[in-house]
Simulated assay, not measured.
Amino acid sequence: MNDRYEQWQAAERLALTLIEGGMQRMAARTLAVFLFTDQDSVTAGEIADRLEASAGSVSGAIKSLATVGLIERLPAPGSRREHYRLRDDAWATLFTSQNTVIQAMLQAAAAGISATKSGDPAHRRLAQMHAFYEFLLGELPALLHRWHQQSG
């Protein structure tokens, strides 16, 4: 077997693990491309070709991965296509306030709290949800600081 085939098999196994962990199938396969590519950046078309997938499904996967902070769009002077890469700090960003999903959860909980009455069980549950995400965001800076000291 050649190295490329073995890498592709490892990428597909990683994608399956991510899918089993709850990630959407195309987002998982797209993330595997970013992790295993030997290029500095890739275009949506290159991902679609590699995965033999539709442009629409790859576009949705890219949007999903960008939303949680795993990938970023790069300027590509002279190119008409958008280029993307895995962020250098992807895993740390996934757990920071830059993560729009965490921010959306906080906003949704706050809206739910405002829409419910204080004694209502829903209000209590939403307040607990909001408190958890606030706690998480409060603890992350120290955790990430320790990570950066260890990794870098």
Rank of each mutant, 00 (worst) to 15 (best):
L106G: 00
T37K: 10
S41I: 02
F34K: 10
A48Q: 02
G22C: 07
L65D: 05
S41P: 00
E134C: 12
T96Q: 14
Q9Y: 11
F34M: 12
G45L: 08
L136E: 01
M129H: 06
S118L: 09
E52T: 10
L18Q: 14
D3I: 10
S97I: 11
L136W: 09
R124Y: 02
E139S: 10
R13T: 08
L51D: 04
R81F: 10
R87I: 02
D89R: 10
G45H: 06
D38R: 15
Q103H: 00
E139H: 02
A15I: 07
E12R: 15
L74V: 05
L31Q: 12
M1E: 12
E134D: 08
S59A: 13
G119S: 07
A28E: 00
L137F: 01
H148I: 03
L51M: 06
L14N: 09
L70M: 09
L137K: 00
T116R: 08
A32N: 03
W8G: 02
F95M: 11
L70K: 07
V68R: 11
A76T: 01
F135W: 11
A44G: 15
N99Y: 05
G21Q: 15
A92H: 03
Q128V: 01
D88T: 10
L65W: 08
S151A: 15
R4K: 13
F132E: 06
S64F: 05
V58N: 07
Q128K: 07
R87E: 04
Q150I: 13
A11K: 09
Y5S: 13
R13L: 14
A27I: 06
L140P: 00
A142C: 04
M1H: 12
D120E: 09
A109L: 03
A110H: 08
G112Q: 05
I19F: 15
S114A: 15
E46F: 04
Q107F: 04
A104F: 04
G22T: 08
E12W: 08
